[in-house]
């Protein structure tokens, strides 16, 4: 599946949107703090405006390969769940199952999974997650995540 989009126009609009979001949230700043962000916002707006113009008058739609959208959406959702889990449940308790699930989903695309694959994935997940957690928290002395479980 392919779609055709005008990347100049889109990126220009993205830049303008970003500039607008920041512009309306700049708040009440003194000269020392405001002068630089104002200049950057102006620069961003000018560049984005130019991109919109180029997109409107000389833009050539670019063909984008949309294959693999479903795995990407899955991947992004996984990242979100991962972070929520680390924050509210625990690093090891979240990472071991998600590690195994991600590994199995990726492996699944090469062929059917056997029970052995599942067991391997879980064991590897335990070893890798536990191993790195140990290295960071014990060896490198990084503070463990603040969450109810490890």
């Amino acid at each position: 599946m392919y779609i055709r989009i005008n990347t100049e126009l889109l990126s220009g609009l993205l830049g303008l949107a970003l500039a607008a979001i920041f512009w309306f949230n700049i708040g009440d700043l003194g000269f020392l703090s405001a002068v630089f962000p104002n200049s950057v916002l102006l620069f961003l707006a000018v560049v984005s405006g130019l991109l919109v113009l180029v997109g409107l008058f000389a833009g050539e739609p670019v063909t984008i390969d949309m294959r693999g959208v479903i795995p990407v959406v899955f991947g992004i959702a996984l990242l979100a769940i991962w972070w929520l889990g680390i924050r509210h449940v625990g690093f090891v308790t979240t990472s071991v199952p998600l590690f195994a699930i991600l590994a199995l989903v990726l492996k699944r695309r090469q062929g059917p999974l056997s029970l052995r694959d599942v067991i391997t994935a879980v064991v590897v997940a335990c070893v890798v997650v536990g191993g790195f957690f140990w290295v960071f928290s014990e060896l490198l002395g990084i503070r463990p995540f603040r969450a109810p479980f490890p």
Binding site: F99, L102, V124
Partner: peptide, 13 residues
């Protein structure tokens, strides 16, 4: 399929 989650773990930590 093991490399991707491992890199993810390391980057998060």
């Amino acid at each position: 399929y093991f490399l991707v989650p491992t890199i993810l773990i390391v980057t998060i930590l």
